[in-house]
Structures are given as structure tokens and as C-alpha cells.
């Protein structure tokens, strides 16, 4: 009943084909980040299938208490991803919704088995790159200093710990400086950011201070919700720092 971290397990055999779940936020606002994740997977020799029938994981409705609506949308995803292939997601938050919360959301529903089977196939992108593909990168870029922002749900629902940082550190010209509030929420929280705008603003403002204290010129993250929040606040405040999704950064460098 309780949702705790549910880290994935490495499949017995290296998969040949994977599904890609782009997420609605990436679809509309960060398609290049989404595409970068697909390119990274394809470059490793995988067949990447992007079902055109996919929409949203349903998290926004679920988090607001509209469970029925969330279930309807989740069911559309069950239909869009029928094969037993792994489902790779470039977002810890959407992945967490599908992996951790689908089984809860469908616990008393007739299609519970379907939800559980679907949940078991969900992987967060950076975790998949490290543990399943053992991705090796050769840095082609100029020297740069970056800092990492960890998304709450990737850490606390998907069990992603240092995987993204391992990938960043494997790039020879990239200096990763950890920020002092790496594990603290940036204040996005979906509707939280508009229901409690002032608390959310205070959180993102502190987050930016922490990111800037590293001296990095760029913030890398694995979740586009956090990215939209932090980058948007940096842009509004005229902060001389930019943000980017991990996949885009890795594809460009390595």
C-alpha cells in the first residue's frame, strides 16, 4: 500500500527493442531533450519504438485527487505500449508515477494485473543507460563546469542515486560541482507551484542560489518539470546560468 522507492532490476538479457515514453511536458516544451534520449538509445544499437498513441502518465490528475480521470489516461498508455518491451522514460517523475503509483491506482480495479505488468517494465533513462546499457562516452566537447539537480521522484521513487552523476563524470572535459542543496526539492511539484506560488517561489529561489554557488555555467537535470521551473526562474531573474536535460547534454558531448 505504501509507495516507497521501487528501483528497477536489470533484465537478464540486454533488450534489442525498447519503448520510449516521451512525457507530455517533453512533448510540448522540450522535444529536443526527448529526441536526445531516443538518439542515445538508438546509438547503442537498440530499436527504439515511439508509440504515436502515447499521451501522458496521468500524474497531474492523480496528484490533484482526480483518480478516475488519471486511470482513464493511464489505460490509454496500457493500450499504446502492448509489447513486453522495456519502457524508457526521460523523467524520474513520470517514471515514478507509472512504476510506483500505477499499481496503487489500480489496486482495486479489474485491470490491476495490466497495471502491474506495465509498471514493472518502466525504467528511468539515466538508470537504464548505466545499468542496462553500460553506456560509455567519449567527450567531444570543450571544458565546461556543470552542476547536477536531482529530481525528488527519480531519487525517492525510482531509486536513481548517482547514475546521472556517473555519466557526467565519465566525460573528461566536464567538471561536475555538486551543489549544497542537491537533494532538496526545487519547488515545482506540479500544481503546487500555482496553488502555493509564494512557497514555490521561495524554494526555487533558494535552489538557484545553491546552483549558482557552485560556479557552474550550466545546470543539468533529468526531469523537465524541474527544468521548466528552475530555468524559467533563472530566465525571469536574469541569472547567468542555463539549464538542460541530461540526455541533450550527453548526446552533444559524447
Amino acid at each position: 500500500m505504501s509507495a516507497m522507492s521501487k528501483p528497477a532490476t536489470v533484465p537478464a538479457e540486454r533488450p534489442k527493442t525498447v519503448y520510449y515514453f516521451g512525457t507530455c511536458l517533453v512533448d510540448l516544451f522540450y522535444p529536443n531533450a526527448g529526441m536526445a534520449g531516443m538518439e542515445l538509445l538508438r546509438r547503442e544499437g537498440l530499436r527504439v519504438v515511439f508509440p504515436q498513441g502515447q499521451t501522458c502518465c496521468g500524474q497531474p490528475a492523480r496528484n490533484c485527487g482526480f483518480f478516475e480521470e488519471a486511470r482513464e489516461v493511464a489505460r490509454a498508455q496500457f493500450d499504446a505500449f502492448p509489447e513486453p518491451w522495456p519502457i524508457v522514460v526521460p523523467s524520474g517523475s513520470c517514471a515514478g508515477m507509472m512504476r510506483v503509483h500505477y499499481p496503487q491506482l489500480f489496486a482495486d480495479q479489474p485491470d490491476r494485473d495490466k497495471a502491474e505488468a506495465f509498471a514493472a517494465r518502466v525504467f528511468e533513462l539515466s538508470w537504464f543507460l548505466v545499468h542496462v546499457l553500460d553506456l560509455k562516452l567519449t567527450d567531444k566537447g570543450e571544458p565546461v563546469t556543470v552542476t547536477w539537480h536531482a529530481s525528488c521522484h527519480s531519487m525517492r521513487e525510482m531509486g536513481v542515486t548517482d547514475e546521472p552523476k556517473r555519466l557526467l563524470r565519465s566525460l573528461s572535459n566536464v567538471t561536475l560541482v555538486e551543489n549544497p542543496r542537491e537533494r532538496e526539492c526545487c519547488g515545482f511539484g506540479g500544481t503546487f507551484s500555482v496553488r502555493q506560488p509564494e512557497v514555490s517561489a521561495a524554494m526555487v529561489s533558494d535552489k538557484i542560489d545553491a546552483l549558482r554557488s557552485t560556479g557552474a555555467t550550466e545546470m543539468i537535470t533529468g526531469d523537465c518539470g524541474c527544468l521548466m521551473n528552475i530555468s524559467g526562474a533563472m530566465e525571469k531573474a536574469g541569472t547567468p546560468m542555463t539549464g538542460r536535460h541530461l540526455a541533450e547534454f550527453l548526446l552533444e558531448r559524447g
Binding site: 525528488c152 511539484g189 496553488r195
Partner: peptide, 10 residues
């Protein structure tokens, strides 16, 4: 609703 559901408490 006064929570970003960050799970730090959990």
C-alpha cells in the same frame, strides 16, 4: 495541497 510531494518526509 501545501506540499510539492517531494517525498523527503517519506
Amino acid at each position: 495541497h501545501a506540499s510539492s510531494l517531494c517525498n523527503a518526509c517519506v
